[in-house]
Each structure stands twice: as C-alpha cells, then as structure tokens.
C-alpha cells in the first residue's frame, strides 16, 4: 500500500521521536524499524530521514553523538534530549486526536431502514 508523501512527511517526526523513546539509535536502524513495525507498509526513502534528524537536532529535540559500528565505521547515534518529553506528549496528543476523528468519520453510515 502506497502512503501519500504528505502523510509520510507529517508522520515522520512523531515516528522518529516515538522510536527513540526506546533508546539510542541510528539512521539505518530507524528506517528498518519503521519498515518492520509497519509490516513493510511504510517504506521511507533512505535519504529522507537524515534532513529530518538534523532538523530535530537543530530544534533540540534529539541529541547526537559519534560512535562506532560493529565493524569499526564511524556512526552517528541519536537519542531524545531531556527536553523532548513535552514535544513527544504533544505529538502523541495530536495524533490521537486525529485518529479519534478519523474513526468517527469512517464509522459505518446508518442504513435507511
């Protein structure tokens, strides 16, 4: 199932912040996790993730550090910043609101008895 670009763009930030709740991660692992959790329904272009990560870092929502991969390569790891809690709660609240609204809109229409 193809997800529209607008929806992918809108959901990227809460998805990334939500995934980082589980602890430190890096770009490739985040993309793989998204694919896994969505049963391959949500497939991000690899490149779209990095400008978002850098924007979130600029905004202070995530922090980065350089480390090493299992094979010794330089790897940049990201984790939530201490100030991300508020932003994360707000993102969750907004998406739950939208989800609730959509559920009501798409309720089965009453049949004309």
């Amino acid at each position: 199932m193809k997800i529209s670009k607008d929806l992918v763009a809108a959901s990227a930030t809460p998805i990334i912040l939500g995934l980082l709740r589980g602890g430190e991660s890096y770009g490739y692992a985040i993309i793989q996790k998204v694919r896994e959790l969505s049963n391959d329904e949500v497939v991000w272009t690899d490149g779209m993730l990095y400008p978002i990560l850098h924007r979130l870092e600029e905004q202070g929502l995530i922090v980065a550090r350089w480390g090493e991969s299992e094979t010794g390569r330089k790897r940049k790891y990201y984790q939530l910043s201490p100030s991300a809690d508020v932003a994360l709660r707000e993102e969750r609240r907004q998406w739950e609101t939208i989800q609730f609204l959509m559920a009501r809109i798409f309720e089965p229409l009453p049949s004309n008895a």
């Binding site: 690899d46 991969s69 330089k74 790897r75 940049k76």
Partner: peptide
C-alpha cells in the same frame, strides 16, 4: 566530512 561519514555508514549498511 561529518555528512559524508554519516551517509557512508548508512550506504554501507544498506
């Protein structure tokens, strides 16, 4: 250099 290093790690992982 920093951008290249981060993207290189991703490309090699893929």
């Amino acid at each position: 250099p920093e951008v290249a290093a981060e993207l290189e790690d991703h490309l090699l992982s893929r």
